[in-house]
């Protein structure tokens, strides 16, 4: 792969305990190309969110990235950056959409103010300029500019999640990390948001790291997919190959556990 946006090599992360350590991520390596939509799938506790947090160094003790691990963002070694460089990296190079949008917006600030926070801190933008930029960003996610003066509780869950996505795009990041961005939303809203991300990625050219345990959804939106099991990346392949020709036993089991809308009620060969 030529000049990947993200390159992870031999990433190992432990949660340090009083007596024993828990290895959450075990020697994981993968790349994400420019403009690529990469999905990371696996069950709760498999380490996928731990990786997402580590990429922008948002992990907190007791999580510890073991030496020998490497995370390169546009060729820069993330693990070697000092605080000032990290601040430059976050939002500008990599932005993150968390699972519960309703909790990641500040309830006592208007939507406009939340945009202003990011834009002023990172670019020193003036209030009127930030307002104009915020309106432009909201338009990207189909929200009218008059909602800028609204508070988060005045918006639906789907709208709040779209606001978070718009804020994440404020500084044109090269990589957008989305950790279960639509799990709390219903299927129609989920679909609207993912179609919007799909179009924005084509227009703006950013890459996406998409984390979910919904394999059917992941195949639908991703170019390539990595399957995680107990901290290890057990299979990486093109999305359609993961769907039509899964190689790892665990990937096959995951498919077998998903009820289907057409044909047999669950995937063939499953033993419920």
């Amino acid at each position: 792969m030529s000049d990947p946006v993200l390159s992870i090599r031999n990433l190992t992360i432990d949660y340090i305990g009083a007596t024993t350590d828990f290895r959450a991520v075990r020697n994981v390596s993968f790349d994400i190309a420019k403009g690529e939509f990469f999905g990371l799938a696996g069950e709760s506790g498999c380490g996928k969110s731990t990786i997402a947090f580590a990429i922008s160094r948002l992990h907190r003790p007791p999580a510890l990235i073991r030496s020998g691990s490497q995370i390169l963002l546009n060729g820069r070694d993330v693990l070697a950056l000092d605080d000032a460089a990290l601040k430059e990296l976050r939002w500008r190079e990599v932005a993150m959409v968390f699972q519960s949008a309703m909790n990641s917006l500040n309830p006592v600030l208007t939507i406009e103010h939340q945009f202003y926070d990011v834009l002023k801190t990172h670019t020193g933008m003036s209030r009127p300029a930030a307002r104009a930029r915020a309106a432009e960003l909201l338009a990207l996610v189909d929200i009218p500019a008059d909602r800028l003066s609204a508070y988060p509780h005045q918006l639906s869950g789907g709208m709040r999640q779209r606001v978070v996505i718009a804020i994440c795009l404020a500084l044109n990041p090269k990589l957008l990390i989305m950790d279960e961005p639509t799990t709390a939303l219903d299927v129609v809203v989920q679909r609207e948001i993912l179609e919007r991300i799909h179009k924005l990625r084509q227009e703006l050219g950013f890459s996406v790291l998409f984390i979910t345990h919904d394999l059917a959804l992941m195949v639908q939106v991703s170019d390539r997919i990595g399957i995680m099991l107990e901290g290890e990346l057990v299979e990486v392949n093109d999305a359609q190959a993961i769907y039509r020709n899964p190689q790892h036993d665990y990937t096959r089991k995951l498919w077998a556990s998903i009820p289907r809308l057409t044909g047999a009620r669950i995937a063939e060969g499953a033993t419920p």
């Binding site: 299927v187 129609v188 989920q190 679909r191 993912l194 179609e195 799909h198 919904d214 394999l215 059917a216 959804l217 195949v219 639908q220 939106v221 999305a239 359609q240 769907y243 809308l261």
Partner: peptide, 12 residues
């Protein structure tokens, strides 16, 4: 509702 259900046979 049915068209919004994730379907691996229909990429976006």
């Amino acid at each position: 509702l049915l068209s919004a259900v994730p379907d691996p046979d229909r990429p976006l």
